[in-house]
């Protein structure tokens, strides 16, 4: 038995709040692993992803949910995220184990902080900080874009009819939460 134990304390752990017309929640145990497609090894990597997750790697700006609940997010030409629920700090090994040596994996779990915003006012609230067009015709369910909100880089994924997962840097989590909360209260 080691003498000391480390306790997990992500910046917004346990945050869960209802507002008029919108709910805001920091999802627990969100693991994020970056997947890089090797140069000239893209085909093999995509094949391995398809085999491991049962879904083809989507095009840049899109995401797809696999059967086991993991979400594959294509960020750019050679970069993707696998986002899944996983508590222990070995997410990189989990994804690495599935994809073997076909890709380069890097744990990003603690780089980001997640916020789920949902409800009828969610889109109206995001209008105040998000420069992207979130109209359903322009931003379909599962679309995933990186952009900037209140000077902070954000990955926004439309996870439902009026639900979005927002990922921003964990070090500025408090500023990001403040920005989103302010938007919700300003439109409520």
């Amino acid at each position: 038995m080691p003498e000391y134990t480390l306790i997990s304390a992500p910046p917004l752990a346990g945050y869960d709040k209802d507002f008029t017309g919108a709910a805001l929640k920091a999802p627990g145990d969100l693991a994020i692993v970056a997947v890089a497609l090797p140069l000239k090894g893209e085909a093999a990597a995509k094949k391995a992803i398809k085999a491991a997750y049962g879904k083809a790697l989507p095009e840049p700006g899109k995401s797809v949910a696999s059967k086991d609940g993991a979400r594959l997010v294509r960020l750019g030409q050679d970069a993707a995220f696998v986002i899944f629920t996983h508590a222990t700090p070995d997410a990189e090994a989990v994804v690495g184990g599935k994809l073997k040596d076909t890709v380069y994996v890097t744990d990003q779990t603690d780089v980001w902080t997640g916020l789920e915003i949902s409800g009828p006012n969610a889109r109206t609230a995001l209008e105040r900080i998000c420069p992207l067009d979130l109209h359903p015709a322009a931003f379909a369910v599962d679309d995933a874009y990186r952009t900037v909100m209140e000077h902070l880089g954000v990955l926004i994924i439309r996870t439902g009819e009026d639900a979005y997962l927002l990922l921003s840097a964990s070090s500025s989590a408090n500023s990001f939460l403040h920005a989103v909360e302010t938007s919700i209260t300003n439109v409520s």
């Binding site: 000391y4 890089a36 140069l39 890097t106 744990d107 603690d110 780089v111 070090s171």
Partner: peptide, 30 residues
């Protein structure tokens, strides 16, 4: 033409300098 990939992990790792003649003795305990 190089197979190389970059990703920032600045926020992902809490990094501490443990410095001084007793630094190894301290780390030995954790």
């Amino acid at each position: 033409d190089l197979d190389v990939h970059l990703i920032s992990t600045t926020d992902g790792w809490a990094q501490f300098a443990v410095a001084g003649p007793n630094s190894r003795n301290l780390l030995r305990k954790v």
